Amino acid sequence: MKVLVTGAAGSIGRVVTVGLAELGHVVVGLDRVPQPDGEDSAWHTVDATDADAVAAVFEEESPDAVVHLAGHPGEASLPDSLTSHVVTTGALLDAMVEHDVRRLVYASSNHAVGRTPRGGPPEAGPVGADARLRPDTFYGVAKVAAEALMSLYADRYGIDAVACRIGSFLERPETVRHLATWLSPDDCVRMVAAALTAPAPGFAVLYGISHNTRAWWDLAPGRALGYEPRDDAEDFAGIIEARPEDEAEAAHVGGPYATAQFERPALDRTS
């Protein structure tokens, strides 16, 4: 399969491009920065908000699928967040429709449900893919909006679109919260590969975490698409030191993004 990977120069992008190539896929990278040294796959230095430039890449490369990892990875103003996550997704979806590309795998975020409280009754269980959308930031709002756009294109054009609500992508967990939210590099590749090849998912959501003993999110939606994580953050529990922030970060599944430090006006004003 020929896969166009946006955000290919980012931390997740570099892992995914290598991992997909090792699985036999032909990978085409797209990022607004030049190709990192030492990589030799096809590459396009393009801003994914530029619909004409994105369409030109599709015209040249004729990909079979898209893995959309591009976007600002943190909080910004509402307009900037929507541009980074929703406008880029729209540009890709339009190019997919124009060139009959049928599969999109999207790096959504756990922050789409980040204001979901923790510490409820035990019978409540892990947060499922059908849980109420409760973004914790404008970043989370933009991820929710991008998922909604994918759902629209799935219904309108029959595109298969999988939103992967990624937890904490790290080489290894570093905080107590990460023991619940960690996504290992190897499991990230497994997740993307499964989302690319799942038969006819339509519009689907999965939680992008490893097989963590303390997981806050339900892995069943991912398993239904063929994602079988193997790593467990609990293997690192003995070296994670407690911090004063741990209690506040455990109050909601979004962790620090759901705390007051991320509260800000929707719009940046000049006066």
Rank of each mutant, 00 (worst) to 15 (best):
A91G: 02
A91K: 00
A91W: 03
A91T: 12
L92W: 10
L92K: 07
L92C: 05
L93I: 04
L93F: 02
L93R: 06
L93Y: 02
D94Y: 00
D94S: 07
D94P: 02
D94E: 06
D94G: 02
A95D: 07
A95W: 00
A95Y: 06
A95N: 00
M96V: 12
M96P: 08
M96F: 03
M96L: 04
M96H: 01
V97W: 00
V97C: 09
E98M: 11
E98K: 12
H99P: 13
H99M: 07
H99T: 10
H99Y: 10
H99S: 13
H99I: 08
H99L: 09
D100G: 03
D100L: 03
D100C: 03
D100Q: 10
D100S: 05
D100R: 07
V101N: 06
R102I: 06
R102M: 06
R103Q: 07
R103V: 05
R103K: 03
V105H: 08
Y106C: 09
Y106D: 11
A107D: 14
S108G: 10
S108K: 08
S108N: 13
S109T: 07
S109C: 08
S109R: 02
S109I: 00
N110M: 13
H111N: 04
H111T: 09
H111Q: 06
H111S: 06
A112E: 14
A112D: 13
V113L: 04
V113C: 05
V113N: 11
G114L: 06
T116E: 10
P117A: 06
P117M: 10
R118L: 15
G119S: 12
G120D: 14
G120S: 12
G120R: 12
P122E: 14
E123H: 12
E123W: 13
E123G: 09
E123A: 14
A124M: 14
A124P: 14
G125D: 15
P126C: 14
P126F: 09
P126G: 11
V127E: 05
G128T: 14
G128N: 11
A129L: 05
D130V: 08
D130P: 05
A131L: 06
A131E: 14
R132F: 14
R132P: 12
R132I: 11
L133F: 09
L133R: 09
L133S: 08
R134G: 10
R134L: 10
R134Q: 12
P135T: 01
D136W: 03
D136M: 01
D136G: 03
T137L: 03
T137E: 09
T137G: 05
F138N: 00
F138V: 00
F138Q: 04
Y139I: 04
Y139H: 05
G140I: 00
G140W: 04
V141I: 04
A142M: 01
A142E: 05
